[in-house]
Design a protein around this nucleic acid. Sequence first.
RNA 1: GCGGACGUGGCGGAACUGGUAGACGCACCGGCUUUAGGAGCCGGCGCCGCAAGGCAUGGGGGUUCGAGUCCCCCCGUCCGCACCA
Length: 833
Amino acid sequence: MPRSVASSAVSTPYDPQAIEARWQQRWLDDGTYEVDNDDPRPPYYVLSMYPYPSGPAHMGHVRNYTMGDLLVRYRTMRGDGVLSPIGFDSFGLPAENAAIQTGTHPRINTEANIELLSASLRRIGAAYDWRRVVKSHDPDYIRWTQWIFLKFHEAGLVYRGEAPVNWCPGCVTVLANEQVLSDGTCERSGDVVEHRDMEQWFYRITAYAQELLDDLDDLEWPNKVKVMQRNWIGRSEGAEFGLPIADVDGNARTDVEPLAVFTTRPDTSFGMTFAVISPEHPRIDELTTDDRRDDVEAFRASLAGRSEIDRLSTEGALDKRGIDIGGRVVNPFTGRDIPLFAADYVLMTYGTGAIMAVPGQDQRDWDFAEAHGCDIVRTVQPPGDFDGQAYLGDGPAINSEFLDGLHVDDAKAAAIDWLEERGLGERTVNYRLRDWLLSRQRYWGCPIPIVYCDDCGERPVPVEDLPIDLPDDVEFMPTGRSPLTTHQGFLGATCPACGGAARRETDTMDTFVDSSWYFLRFTDPWNEEAPFDTASASRWLAVDQYIGGVEHAILHLMYARFFTKALADLGVAPAGLREPFARLFTQGMIRLGGAKMSKSKGNLIAPEEILDDQGADALRLAHLQVKPPQEDVDWEDFGIDGCAKFLARVWRLAVPGGDLAAGARDGSPTAADTEVDKATHRLVARITDEYDRWSYNTAIAGFMEFTNLVYRWVQADDGPHGPTLDAAVDALLLLMAPAAPHLCAELWEARNGGHLHEQSWPEADPAMLVDDTVTMVVQVNGKVRDRLEVPADLDESGAEAAALTSDKVAALLDGAVPRKVIARPPKLVNLVV
RNA sequence: GCGGACGUGGCGGAACUGGUAGACGCACCGGCUUUAGGAGCCGGCGCCGCAAGGCAUGGGGGUUCGAGUCCCCCCGUCCGCACCA
């Protein structure tokens, strides 16, 4: 048969360095993975999460980008026009902190790091359309980030407000709620976060709370991530109603606003024996009586010095955590006046900042009531064997007049109806989700396009003045204070309304803003009239497969979803685009010595050393083989050498003129040849399925198993038949191409000429997937006793008959007749005696 | 505390819908090949036992002809949230 034998590869040993550099250059030169917006193939969008350029790729990147690249190459061979873009989340604190320490401008460092990371990505063989690169700090990108801000501003989705903010002393900036860990420390620096009241910019993400919750249902995302998002949004249904303020005689005053409370248990209202407000509540002074004023002030002062960790810890005696403020309110259900407390655990930022306390059905209220001598009234009948304190379960209402006898759900509805009929309150929904604080008091971020005029107030910058870029002639102060705040050239602006002098906003945007729309820009990165056009976005979005780490389960993914919905509603993105990422895959992280591999822990393994030694294909294969991709891995478990040996084995099998190619003979196929042909087709079917299911570790096992089989056959069968061997090896190269792209491309070219990655994906012949005979298991009482070769089309009675021919079975039966026979031909027969 | 995931050889892991437990790799052991290398090829490798055979998927029950897989209880590990009214 004709076979082009490239002289360059004859019997040469496997040399990953030479091969890999050559193909990486070739993919760039040929634009193999460039795709235009009018590409005739079906569109498929594969995206790995926007990396922060901190230098060359680390192992986590390699894992992430190997998975993405496998999919890009696989889908391309399947015939799709795959959009595979790459970009850089290039604003952010590390570059600015480095500037403060070394004096090197963040732009210099960042651009150098982008080059390093790009080079690493090319070295692992990751294929991208490099024409579409997007960088957050690029003026072309800043312009559109600012443009979107202004669009949102116009639509009321951006506002400026005084708010208690999380201030990180280490980062010298405020943090979004999401960036503060549950122990009250900064997710970046680990510093204890302080609380300050500041004027800040917010995105009104809460306007989309319900939609963000509802639309999770249809996403093909890991359940874990959806659960985390649902918890974060934290929807709770209940009622909001007013507690009238009591006069000295305990009667409800009508001349002052009642105190609003939110509850999810309106059914327990008759058991409300006291109420609690947040120490930060704006009405606390009004509701504090003069005789209590000094004590309340002292209590509030004691909180001011306490950190958030302390304040939110569950520890601490409840008598110390709350104080009677003297004022009394009326329980509208009972008409009785009850005491009012202030307690640190009531948050001003959730609900109304005030709660009704029902000790009978809430353990914390029970504890508080005991500590402060309040009454406890059960309003839900606990079961007879209940011996706890507060009872949280279902049961008939008691001590609740018109609610008595109703179970919790019905009682809730009846209680709300009662409130609504009297105009005292209403059914409400509360969300834990809060608006997204986007201001950062830092230099290296996207400037907020707002100016402040003494006469006209805050004014958006006209779009024709965009981008507002960062000045380069700045000095970084060791205080960490943003140089923008003292840069006269930047500060000075003209008011777009009156033409007078104005001062520019010096806060920049949270970098999560940049990553909230980059996937849209990739669809149309050359556009100078708009951030992207709707047709391009419509063609590619939603992203068919998004790949990244679980650490972005809440922050980035929630923000990007919000941006997509808002942009669609503003007519910037296609109206029907409700979600950016149809499918999400979260790959596991890499640990070393039991700890997450990270720069800060100093336990990094540099990919370069392995790339220099065993090569990119071996490293990729090791990442794919070591564990299911979604699970965390210990670096100690990686088998780079084993993978490199396997690749060398494939090389020797496939290389023209190699040892195993010798001795090829012609003539009619033997039975052994047919078995190999069938194994080839089974492999095609298997790998296709496993790639589709992200079962990459078993796919690699499949390659090894198949290679072993071919080796044994070649050596046992006195030289292979040429066509069978060629078909087996070519199929192996095609199937392995997405996993080990360089080696396979090289071998393909040497064997067949042409470019492997332009070949189409092989298809298994269904006729080759069926066998004439199969191994049937014979069980006696459910235990395997024998295995028989039987025809594949055996029926039940045939299977039973075959089973009874077994000597081993006959010996066990010892003449007895099976009581029952379960035949599942052709796989299994179970004889029950 | 609430929510989620999980528990299989010395190790990482296979076993898609209940039907041959341990694929594949690592480690280890043996053999071959004049080969000295980070080699290659073949074979062995759950535990107990000379064997026949028995025992095995965190522990205990259950459903079923049959359970790693389904149900209940318990133990343990990891992750997320955590005074949210």
